[in-house]
Simulated assay, not measured.
Amino acid sequence: MAKIIAFANQKGGVGKTTTTCAIAAGLKEKGNRVLCVDLDPQSNLSFSVGACSEDCATIYDVLKGDVKPLFAIQRAGVFDIISSNILLSGVELEFTQTGREYLLKEALATLTSKYDYILIDTPPALSILTVNAFTAANGIIIPMNADIFSLQGIAQLSETVDKVRNYCNPNLKLEGIVLTKFNKNTVLSKDILGTAQLIAQELHTHLFVSTIRSSVAIMEAQTNQQSIYEYAPNNNAVMDYKSLVEEMLSVGI
């Protein structure tokens, strides 16, 4: 039975898609069966692995009920993916039926026996798509930049998680916070690290020891639609993501 993990932060540019992709590839390297679901209308995860987003079945078609989830899966090199496209941006107005929060959960229920992990890349907004991801997931990982603006958004995210727990998914767990674009040599990063530790304690969650350094090679790999582990295996940030995968597995995620 697959463990379903959503990667969420309503602030853009925090490395959410990169983290989803890197962890998926890392888990696959460990011998796991991995499916990614791109739930972001911007389709960045789909693009970064070379998945089709136009003239093919996407998560939008699955949520509408037009396509069975199994037939929307693409083999995207390292791991499987259900891609996204821009039509997802209209679901807030289009999906108004009762129970719309459960659409993704119902769709993924047919796939959980086929994978060890299902990872969901969410949009940078606390929308019905994010609520669907939280309703479907067992746990949430929050990637955040080592800056004050990222910290400010965690409170809002926590409120949404609490609402989903109360109404849709009582077993939803905050698996942890991972700091991205982290430079341990700056005073700011050290301050943010301390604050993030306090926030993690308040939210009764885990601040991952593994932090992710900035790297141009990560962006280059995504632009070239290659796995970061193949494109730059000895890069600092790639090594950081490997450590993060090891840490996740060691704490039972």
Rank of each mutant, 00 (worst) to 15 (best):
T135G: 10
K28W: 05
N235E: 14
Y167Q: 14
S210R: 03
P233I: 12
Y167P: 00
T18H: 06
A2G: 04
A200M: 02
K242G: 15
G31P: 01
V209E: 15
Y229W: 01
S53K: 14
A107F: 06
K68T: 09
F149W: 14
N235W: 00
S227Y: 07
N236W: 00
P123M: 12
L88M: 02
F71Y: 13
C52T: 05
N234H: 13
F47W: 06
S84W: 06
I142A: 07
P170I: 01
M1S: 13
F7K: 02
C56N: 04
K181W: 02
I118Y: 10
A137C: 13
L63S: 04
I120R: 10
A196Q: 08
D116C: 04
S243P: 00
K242C: 06
S210L: 03
K16L: 13
I120D: 04
G99N: 11
L198W: 00
P123T: 12
Q74K: 02
V238D: 10
M219E: 15
G13S: 12
S250Y: 02
N9Y: 09
D191C: 02
V49G: 04
E246T: 13
N85K: 03
Q74N: 01
V37E: 13
N9D: 11
Q97W: 04
D55H: 12
G26D: 10
T18Y: 06
I82A: 00
R100H: 08
E230A: 13
Y115D: 10
V238Q: 09
L179N: 11
D55Q: 10
I120W: 11
V34I: 08
S83G: 14
N132D: 10
V245C: 05
S84N: 06
Q156Y: 10
G176Y: 06
K242I: 03
G65W: 04
V49M: 09
A146F: 05
A125G: 10
F79P: 02
T122P: 05
N85V: 03
S250C: 07
Y117R: 10
I81F: 01
D240I: 05
A8D: 08
C56H: 02
V164E: 08
K11E: 11
Q201C: 01
V178P: 03
Q10P: 05
N138Y: 04
Q10I: 03
Q226P: 01
L88E: 12
K242T: 08
I128L: 15
G12A: 07
G99T: 07
T195N: 06
L203M: 15
